[in-house]
Amino acid sequence: MATMNISLPAQMKKWVEDQTKDGRYANSSDVIRDLIRREQIKAEKIAHMQALIDEGRASGISTRTMEDIRTEALARIAQRRKAG
Results as ranks from 00 to 15, higher is better:
8 L>G: 02
61 I>K: 06
40 Q>R: 06
55 E>N: 13
45 K>Y: 15
55 E>T: 13
28 S>M: 10
72 E>N: 06
17 E>F: 14
10 A>M: 07
19 Q>I: 01
75 A>M: 02
74 L>C: 01
25 Y>K: 02
51 A>R: 12
37 R>T: 11
56 G>D: 05
46 I>M: 06
26 A>P: 06
3 T>A: 09
52 L>H: 07
63 T>L: 09
1 M>A: 14
41 I>C: 05
5 N>P: 00
49 M>E: 08
64 R>L: 06
60 G>F: 00
58 A>L: 03
29 S>I: 06
70 R>I: 07
45 K>D: 13
67 E>D: 08
3 T>S: 14
80 R>D: 12
43 A>I: 08
72 E>F: 13
30 D>P: 00
67 E>P: 04
2 A>C: 08
70 R>Q: 13
75 A>S: 03
33 R>E: 07
55 E>R: 11
53 I>W: 13
43 A>M: 08
70 R>L: 09
60 G>Q: 02
28 S>W: 04
59 S>I: 00
21 K>L: 15
12 M>T: 13
21 K>C: 07
22 D>N: 12
23 G>T: 09
76 R>H: 12
20 T>N: 04
16 V>E: 01
10 A>C: 06
60 G>R: 01
76 R>D: 05
1 M>W: 07
34 D>C: 11
82 K>C: 07
60 G>M: 01
11 Q>P: 08
32 I>H: 01
62 S>E: 03
77 I>W: 04
68 D>Y: 00
71 T>K: 01
14 K>N: 11
24 R>A: 15
40 Q>T: 09
45 K>L: 07
80 R>P: 04
71 T>W: 01
83 A>E: 09
31 V>P: 02
9 P>S: 14
38 R>S: 10
28 S>N: 10
2 A>Y: 12
11 Q>G: 06
78 A>L: 06
31 V>M: 03
5 N>R: 13
